[in-house]
């Protein structure tokens, strides 16, 4: 065996190292993206449940949901709940009430649900 065949050339080593670095970087980024994505989806799933619960309360106990912001803690994470009520006069003795609930968690962006109700004038909802 000659000296030139005792190992790998510099360029081969550089090439192999570059491939390994790129691959390792890509793997790391994908693991990070997976982890972030999982966290984001988990947060959004919790936010959706919170928003759906707020809407269920609004349907079950009309008038129980007040406009404004508040925070709740679910599974160790803090979520902000923003509720907006917009009432439009439809004529007659009813209003068209739109309830919008936006829940924002620590990651994943806000989740917004909207529901329109028929609200009796002079009464607290319907």
């Amino acid at each position: 065996m000659t000296d030139s065949r005792a190992g790998y050339s510099l360029i081969e080593t550089v090439l192999a190292s570059a491939i390994l670095i790129v691959v390792t970087g890509a793997l790391a980024m994908s693991v990070k993206a997976f982890s972030d994505g999982q966290e984001s989806v988990s947060c959004r799933a919790s936010a959706l449940v919170i928003a759906a619960d707020e809407m269920a309360d609004a349907e079950s106990w009309p008038g129980s949901v007040a406009p404004g912001s508040r925070t709740v803690e679910v599974d160790g994470r803090e979520y902000s709940i923003d509720t907006r009520l917009i009432s439009e006069d439809t004529g007659g003795s009813f209003n068209d009430l739109t309830v919008t609930v936006t829940v924002t968690g620590p990651s994943g962006g806000p989740v917004t649900l909207e529901r329109r109700f028929v609200e009796s004038k002079g009464a607290e909802w319907r």
């Binding site: 691959v23 793997l27 994908s30 993206a33 997976f34």
Partner: peptide
């Protein structure tokens, strides 16, 4: 293989 795994994860 590693790239494929990464793509699968993504």
């Amino acid at each position: 293989v590693v790239m494929l795994s990464a793509l699968l994860l993504l």
